[in-house]
């Protein structure tokens, strides 16, 4: 019985943290912070799949979440901030 209550507590904690992370990810104005929170969200999703007895899905989420999503978003952010920065400088020159 003890084990079941520990597992239930585990589930509740994972669920609440998932919701909290999702909210923080979306409401974050700092894009880099949002991406790092999203990477953490993916990690926690893998734990949720494990608890739902879906190890295949957990494995897919782990490989994609750890290996691809983070790299894709970080790479896109780097290219994005480079071009917006250029735009800011252009504005500065025009305004001066």
């Amino acid at each position: 019985m003890e084990e079941i209550s520990i597992l239930l507590l585990f589930d509740v904690l994972v669920g609440l943290t998932l919701v909290w992370l999702a909210w923080q990810t979306l409401s974050s104005l700092d894009l880099f912070r949002a991406i790092v929170l999203f990477i953490a969200f993916g990690l926690l999703m893998a734990l949720a799949w494990v608890r739902l007895n879906a190890p295949d899905v957990a494995l897919a989420e782990a490989t994609i979440g750890a290996g691809l999503t983070g790299a894709l978003f970080l790479s896109a952010l780097a290219q994005l901030s480079a071009s917006t920065k250029r735009k800011d400088e252009e504005n500065k020159i025009e305004n001066s």
């Binding site: 990690l43 782990a62 750890a66 290996g67 983070g70 790299a71 970080l74």
Partner: peptide
């Protein structure tokens, strides 16, 4: 997780 953490 242990292997792919390096990529991020």
């Amino acid at each position: 997780f242990a292997l792919l953490a390096a990529v991020t």
